[in-house]
Simulated scan of single mutants.
Amino acid sequence: MAPKTNCTPAKLAAALAYLQKSGVAHTIKDLEKSLPSVAQINGMQVKDYIQMLQDDSKIRAERIGSVNWYWNFVLDDKITRQRALDAAKATYGKAVETDEELKRKLEEAESQRCADDEALEDRGECRHELLSKKRLLEIERENVRHELAAYSDNDPTELEHKSKEADELRRLTEEYTDDIYSMEGWLKDALTGNAEALSATLEAVYDKEYDEEARTLKELA
């Protein structure tokens, strides 16, 4: 239960110092007699000040029989602080381990990406280059179509050739895309539980072909 009195920090500190210095446990009646003089606390407000110190874990309390006893031993305070320090060190150690593990996974993913890029290069052309050629051929095909529309008696053989070439490039592009999706699946498994690192890696690898909304490779137009 929250104390009804508006406890002042200075009086709280004085009451705590008295309990620490005394080195013994006190009943509330003992404190109602001593604290008014040593901490300038009204006798009617002593219970509220003790309750506030207890709520803030500044003092310990134990009920023995029908009486509550209150104390603050220096050794107890040291033990509490040491436990908090040990817990903080353990948390920090786990954070360091997690950070090192994520860095290791990122290094593995980067190494795998480089190996996969080399494999694609060995096969001829990368997906980005194929897409660029495909766009150029489609533009060229549209230009030819416009020319044929103006000269309807022209032979459409060239247009057919360009169309087949563009279709073949699309087929190759889709084949490479399937390979890329397979590598992406491996990377997602390697970075399971770390969506931020996964998005950053994919964005760096896909560059202009990265779909920010879908968080993956852009669909072929």
Rank of each mutant, 00 (worst) to 15 (best):
T27R: 04
A204C: 00
Y210P: 00
N68V: 12
T27S: 10
S34E: 15
A190E: 01
A204S: 01
F73L: 13
C7R: 04
P36E: 08
H128C: 08
R170P: 00
D211Q: 00
K47H: 10
K58E: 14
C114M: 14
L31I: 03
V96N: 01
K103H: 09
E118P: 05
D179H: 08
Y210F: 08
L202M: 01
E121L: 14
A15R: 03
Q112N: 10
V205F: 07
E219N: 05
Q40N: 14
D99I: 06
M183T: 02
A39G: 12
L102S: 08
Y151N: 13
S132G: 11
W71A: 14
E100P: 06
V67C: 09
L130E: 03
S132A: 09
M1I: 06
V96E: 07
G93I: 04
Y70V: 05
E147Q: 10
G93Q: 15
K162N: 03
A39S: 11
T173C: 09
R135Y: 05
E203M: 00
K4D: 10
A221K: 03
V205K: 02
K133P: 01
T98K: 04
L159E: 06
P3D: 11
Y92C: 13
I41N: 07
Y92K: 14
R127C: 13
D155E: 09
I59H: 03
A115I: 09
D207R: 00
I59W: 06
M183H: 04
A150G: 03
A195S: 02
S57F: 07
E219P: 02
Y181V: 00
T8I: 09
E168P: 03
R63I: 08
S152E: 11
N68K: 05
E219G: 04
K218D: 03
D122E: 09
L202W: 00
A39I: 08
I139D: 14
H128F: 10
K103I: 03
H146G: 13
K134P: 01
E138T: 12
A200R: 02
Y206D: 05
V205H: 02
A109Y: 01
A84F: 09
A84C: 14
P156L: 09
E32N: 06
I180L: 02
A190G: 01
K47W: 04
K162H: 11
E125G: 07
T80R: 15
I79Q: 08
Y92H: 15
L19G: 00
